[in-house]
Amino acid sequence: MPIIAIDAMGGDHAPGEIVKGVARASLETDIDCLLVGDERRIQEVLETVPYNPEHISIVDCRDAIGMDEDPHEAVKNRRDASLLVATRAVAEGRANAMVSAGNTGACVLACARDFRLLKGIRRAALASVYPRHTEYTGQDPLALVLDVGATIRCEAEELVQFALMGSAYARRISKVPSPRVALLNMGVEASKGGETLVAAHRRLRRMPALNFVGNVEGNDLARGGADVIVCEGLLGNVVLKLVEGIAEVFTDVASAAARRRLTWRIGLALLARGIERLRELTDYTQYGGAPILGFENLFIKCHGRSNARAVANAVKVAAKAVRDRVPAEIAEAVASLR
């Protein structure tokens, strides 16, 4: 059974929700969890919830990197922070993969510091999931987008590698036999987007092992035309934040409207079940987190606001990725390029 290291102190609701998530995973699965963080605080939380100690061990460390800290400074100077102790545990073979809801920049830098890149991989990619329209029953309502911030600017070769990594991950984790891969661009034509995107498009089109469906524009993202969207880190991050921002504004507007007029309140009440269903379909907590791909070890990055359910699912995703040998599959896919 894989051992998953969890940064207990990372995240807006750490350690409470992180520890509760691990406690939940310990009851629902046989996954061994290595909680890294302040042992006393972790134990305090554990004693308030049902858990199975047979699957939980704790590495005590008092330091933690805050969500608003400068990632470079923190990773450089805070050697005994929970995040770094956990990545070292994975690098030293005491755990097989890692989960954190902490400072995203620090997570990426910690991986870069302690993990080795897979052979042939030039840059790591931070992936994320976003809700999209489903076309058939059982289709994953969340698609994968990468990179969302690990690499700001990319070359064509790197985008091709991202496509291979994303495809391998979706094949294993989302159980899509042949994931549709698309390049995020400003037009569907192959000639659009400048030199890098054109070169990447050309190379991806020539790869029979990859189900490349061409370019997609921003308005196609939510339509579900692709299972994996590939883009530069800068663009991916903007897209991700835009999606989150729209969702928040939508919620705020709906709440304000409901407060203002009775008829709108009634309308929202009538739609409540539908809205709830929509929320369930697009609930990121069911996915747990998204991976940082390209390293020999797997790192699942959870949303900073992750609750216990999200953390438990992230632990399951990490264990599944280890069992299904996702890094090895990515390495094989990249090796086939050479």
């Binding site: 059974m1 061994d32 042992e39 554990l46 100690p53 047979e54 699957h55 939980i56 061990s57 704790i58």
Partner: peptide, 17 residues
């Protein structure tokens, strides 16, 4: 179906409590 690790974790839990 226990493993050595499960038993070791059980021991650690007793100490923490």
């Amino acid at each position: 179906g226990y493993t050595g690790r499960r038993l070791e974790n059980s021991l650690g839990d007793l100490v923490r409590r």
